[in-house]
Design a protein around this nucleic acid. Structure first.
Length: 303
DNA sequence: CAGGATCCTACGCAGGATGA
DNA sequence: TCATCCTGCGTAGGATCCTG
């Protein structure tokens, strides 16, 4: 590439026009330039190639052997280059063998990706999806580096960098969940009964026993019994199915888990909005835009 | 804001075409 | 054959825009 650093690549476009026309004036017209401008460019080309390239002849110029040898390879090179920098063609999902790298928690895997997968396999059978663990603080940097294409995260979150694009997916609310046949969930528990149950909480940063539910209870001067804190939502669902523990679970996740009974909690707990996030670098990419639209459409269908 | 890059117009020069 | 015209290339100098 070092020899390319010496040359203004636009000169090659001029040379291509000169070799096609063998006439500086007509080459200038083709390039929408004045004749002297192309004449100066020809002088620079002669210097770069260390060859006269075009010699004066009757009604125009005659090409040198070097110029003739350059004509076809140059035209082909410019054709390839023009194709490379042309705007990307529209995305053809059936043929495309694209790999999407998506950052998600097990919650968004279950609620967003899982319902989408079968449709994705049909619509874009050559495509691949790599799901990576979501690290909200690192998400923007990972996207800037091109390591992650798309991420699912809570909409209102101070941790999420504002410089990412985002799109609302759905609003989520909490339900009280326990195993089918749980004696404490035959009907909606009172607040006192709710606090007497043994709870599981999800603490993604690990080890926390206090969450939004506990804050809502504290406002009423109440406290619940948290017996287990885990980092993953899916482990909660598995735990509930095998024990008498209960949990406040996002409704979409709870409905996707078999063997659980869901009841309305006796305390109002603030839900949250889910969104997908992406970087400017993939904002206009047709494949990326197609995937985002597909996800948004699925979420709309699922209500 | 200075310096460089780029493009323009104006003009000179060379060589081929044309007509007396 | 030669004067004149026409076509086309290159240079000079200036305007404008961009960049550091």
């Amino acid at each position: 590439m070092d020899n390319l650093r010496r040359i203004d690549l636009n000169l090659l476009v001029t040379l291509d026009a000169l070799l096609a026309e063998l006439n500086v004036t007509r080459a200038a017209q083709r390039l929408f330039l004045a004749q002297p401008t192309v004449s100066v460019q020809l002088a620079r080309l002669r210097e770069v190639f260390d060859d006269p390239l075009l010699l004066p002849g009757p009604r125009g110029m005659r090409p040198t052997a070097r110029a003739l040898a350059l004509r076809e390879p140059l035209r082909e090179a410019l054709r390839v280059l023009a194709g490379t920098i042309a705007p990307p063609a529209s995305f053809e999902p059936v043929q495309a063998s694209v790999t999407w790298r998506i950052a998600a928690t097990d919650y968004s895997e279950t609620t967003v990706l899982l319902p989408l997968l079968a449709d994705l396999r049909t619509a874009a059978p050559q495509s691949r999806v790599a799901v990576l663990e979501l690290a909200p603080l690192r998400l923007a940097a990972q996207m800037e580096r091109g390591e992650i294409d798309l991420g699912f995260h809570i909409w209102h979150d101070a941790e999420t960098p504002p410089r990412l694009h985002r799109q609302f997916l759905f609003g989520e609310r909490y339900v009280l969940a326990g195993r089918d046949g749980h004696p404490g969930l035959r009907r909606r528990p009172t607040l006192k009964q709710f606090c007497a149950l043994e709870h599981v909480v999800v603490s993604q940063d690990g080890g926390g026993f206090h969450g939004v539910t506990d804050r809502a209870l504290a406002e009423r001067g109440m406290q619940r019994r948290v017996a287990l804190s885990v980092p993953h939502f899916l482990f909660v669902a598995a735990t509930l199915a095998r024990t008498d523990l209960v949990a406040m679970l996002p409704e979409r996740l709870a409905r996707a888990s078999a063997g659980l009974r869901l009841v309305a909690p006796p305390v109002a707990v603030q839900g949250y909005d889910m969104a997908m996030f992406w970087h400017e670098r993939s904002h206009r990419d047709p494949a990326h835009a197609w995937l985002r639209e597909r996800i948004a459409a699925h979420v709309r269908e699922d209500g």
